[in-house]
Design a protein around this nucleic acid. Structure first.
Lengths: 251, 251
DNA sequence: TAGTGGTCTAGACCACATT
DNA sequence: ATGTGGTCTAGACCACTAC
């Protein structure tokens, strides 16, 4: 790693900040890689030396480097060194809502709320959400349109205590996950099943598709950081305008 | 955590083993959770105390616990403790081949090799594999059958140096990824695009599907641990018999 | 106030790859 | 023989939670 990058990082590190040092360092390294100051193929230099130059301990340096290794930006080889192998941040496998996802691409999604009600969960939903049979949940059904084209039907079931104050107006303006995050839900993991089938008449009507068109279907159960399932989502996409892109790490 | 589990783990830890202590500990904890000795809802006890009982340092204990937190088995809360929130090991997002995947489910896949040849990579494949235009690659086309049913068409393009000695007989007997691993390829990450469409006449003929059936399609570029792309896979699945199941962590 | 996890240090020794 | 990352230690102080 060239001298100037080391100096840049030295300047950027702020010990008075509440942000952990390893996190600051990981961010600075990521920035240096993505803007080309630390190009693909370069070696970082050995950890002991880097720790010394940055005046932080080696475990802290290692922790920062590990973040980038996990993202696929760096590769470590014992006896060799740490090398930059990619200069674009791998899109993480995401739990973002479709709304956020499209906005991040600079497109302007519009949302029609078809259904918004409190219902008694059926057996499958109740089991997925770890609720007693007969429990009530919030059921939402939306249609997502982009560039005048109907893209997806989104059906969600959410535990009553987390979603009881969500309004249709809010759903029109932002993604479900943004609303949940604002209510203190921190998504942690989701089980996801992806399939495909021919559009049913209902699908075709809602998505404005011809008879016989293919749709992509997903069903997920999202759990928040306390390990409790919070939301079930069952989504149907027009396969001719949507693909799921993801990135799988360290299999 | 009850006394006996702590003792079990104390007995199981082996400092003479080349397996890292944090890894041994993580495995023991995972086993204790999955077999019910450490049930859902239980707290582990504080880290300083555990480190003392197991006679290992607290950072090592933390590293082991972190593994399970990342898998969604445990939740840590500052000021509160570490609690078991799930008793089944989340299936990791996998880079396993379909063959391995089905075998893990106890089913017996059979493979027909339709094409196996060295060809000049087209522009898209060459770009994906980071090869010069006109480079040669191994092209494989297989049909995967399970329980007498044609499940998928698998098309792969692999860099010549890694796959030149693979034979059709080997492809019939095991999954592509197993063969690649045996050749020293360690899969590290893959970009994956999932879509759906109506089967083309070719798809329908190869998969023995009726006209108008839906197929699930995936395209991936796999990179090994050195960061180099090694393989491109383009797969087509009978959507009526196959879904992709996965698990998304920490979004 | 007491107890918990979160971060950080300054070393040590080992395994592996290269020369 | 040298240099690298991989693991591990025995502390320290801080931030947050619950009482």
């Amino acid at each position: 790693m060239i001298e100037s990058v080391i100096s840049d990082i030295n300047r950027a590190m702020d010990r008075t900040s509440p942000v952990p040092l390893y996190f600051q360092l990981a961010g600075e390294l990521q920035r240096a890689i993505s803007d080309g100051r630390l190009p693909k193929g370069d070696f970082l230099g050995n950890e002991v030396d880097l720790a010394d130059r940055w005046q932080i301990s080696r475990p802290t340096v290692r922790r920062a480097i590990k973040e980038l290794v996990d993202q696929g930006l760096l590769v470590r080889q014992r006896g060799v060194g740490t090398q930059v192998v990619s200069d674009h941040i791998r899109r993480r496998v995401t739990l973002m809502s479709l709304h956020d996802d499209l906005e991040a691409q600079g497109r302007a999604p519009t949302t029609t709320v078809l259904t918004h009600e409190v219902v008694v969960a059926d057996a499958g939903i109740a089991a997925s959400l770890n609720l007693a049979p007969g429990s009530k949940v919030v059921h939402i059904e939306r249609c997502r349109t982009v560039d005048g084209r109907r893209l997806a039907i989104l059906r969600n079931w959410i535990t009553l205590d987390t979603a009881s104050d969500i309004t249709p107006a809010q759903l029109r303006g932002s993604g479900l996950y943004a609303l949940l995050r604002a209510r203190g839900v921190r998504p942690h993991s989701a089980e996801l099943e992806i399939g495909a089938r021919i559009a049913t008449p209902t699908d075709a009507a809602l998505l404005d598709l011809p008879v016989g068109a293919a749709v992509l279907t997903t069903r997920r159960v999202m759990q928040d950081s306390s390990g409790q399932p919070v939301e079930v989502g069952s989504h149907i996409y027009d396969a001719s305008s949507y693909t799921i892109e993801t990135n799988v790490l360290s299999g």
